[in-house]
Nucleic acid binder design. Structure first.
Lengths: 223, 223
DNA sequence: GGGGGCCGATTCATCGGATGAATACCCGGT
DNA sequence: ACCGGGTATTCATCCGATGAATCGGCCCCC
């Protein structure tokens, strides 16, 4: 194995074993390089790779630190990966979302705070009757994110956030200019919100399923 | 932004835009570095980072290539990320698995091939009545993987594979030496298999839920 | 004529050192 | 006690050189 890959494994091992804890500072590049037995250049490649997936956080002039390792932070890297997927796999991602989102919405029915529901309602009201596509996409993203956050599982939240990333979502909505689709989307959002207010998990799950299924159906018909 | 990060973005853009397609070969390091306006060393950091998440595949003496970009390949990188999570977040990962796995098992009920069911049954039979913990973990992993693969969604399959990665699973099972737990696990596996043979999606989903819930319950009681 | 091994060309792997940029830290002034 | 500047530390970037792995063509031998 290449020395750089060894370095990646060793740093990973230091973190997993607990020798390095979240927030800890690593020795400076030259020292760590000597410690691991490779050149500073090669070590930097390892650090850069771990930095891309949010394991390490390098600050020029300061030092290199282990991140908080929060699920949110690490899974955030997944959206970077999802961006690479081409259109022919979007349906598969959507199918996964179709499983997770209704479940998350149902979970939120019993846990989400009233204040959060008020915020979501206000956000829906703020959107006029003639929103631009960009506004609608942003609103849609924020709406679902708010609900999933209410489910109280940060891994689930980050995962859905990644799956529904801007790129995928934007692609799905691009060209979706039919007026009835926009109206239907807003109507479904309000229905989901109403079910959450009623603390009706079954209804919330059903509306979320309908909501995603309609997107899936539209997407399938256009491919 | 740092030149290396710019390079990462530019290479990503080349792939997303279609200028570079899966399997394509990149210009050699020195040329690409000149093209992107940075040094070879800095470019190598960018390439190494993209290589860690399986976007690029570098072969010494040959060249650097864009991978197939299969969902399986890219999400495989996720298991690397999951390895970093500490025990206190395992429950959240398990909760997500509790959502996905029953759904995947239900999907498999209508799609999985008889031959695949036979293979799974044979595998269960091959495991003696007194398996070692390592054997049981490997068997458990392979059993669920086989079923999820039968669901016919590679994204879902890779995702669950990552969530149920060796580390997490091994941690869960370590110390789980109670005889009844082992017996119960095997019994549940057989029940899931029977439901799949009957093409009974509801039963399959239910057994899968029970199966994971029992692990979750045990884990919760020991934390 | 065909097969196999040698050898050079290509490309990545790794290294050491030098210089610039950003940040942290200390220390003196007010 | 607060503020500002200068210095030390640390990462960022570059260059050039050498080693290692692979590929492909050429030559020799059968």
């Amino acid at each position: 194995m290449a020395v750089t890959d060894e370095a990646i494994e060793k740093i990973k091992e230091m973190i997993v074993s607990g020798a390095l804890r979240p927030g800890d500072r690593l020795p400076k590049e030259s020292e760590l390089a000597a410690e691991l037995g490779l050149s500073r250049n090669s070590l930097r490649e390892a650090v850069r790779a771990l930095s891309l997936i949010r394991i390490l956080d390098v600050r020029q002039g300061d030092g290199t630190y282990v991140t908080s390792l929060d699920p949110q932070l690490l899974l955030e890297a997944m959206s970077f990966v999802v961006d690479f997927h081409r259109d022919d796999t979007v349906l598969e991602f959507l199918a996964v979302r179709r499983i997770l989102e209704p479940a998350a919405t149902a979970m939120a029915a019993s846990r989400i705070e009233d204040a959060e529901l008020d915020a979501l309602a206000a956000q829906l009201d703020a959107l006029g009757s003639e929103p631009s596509v960009e506004e609608l996409v942003a609103c849609d993203l924020e709406f679902h994110r708010g609900i999933v956050r209410g489910a109280g599982n940060s891994v689930l939240c980050s995962l859905l956030d990644g799956l529904s990333g801007p790129t995928t979502r934007a692609r799905v909505w691009r060209g979706l200019t039919q007026e009835d689709a926009v109206a239907r989307t807003l109507h479904e959002h309000r229905a989901i919100l109403a079910a959450l207010r009623d603390r009706d998990a079954d209804a919330a799950r059903a509306w979320a399923t309908v909501h995603i299924a309609s997107v899936e159906q539209w997407l399938r018909s256009t491919l």
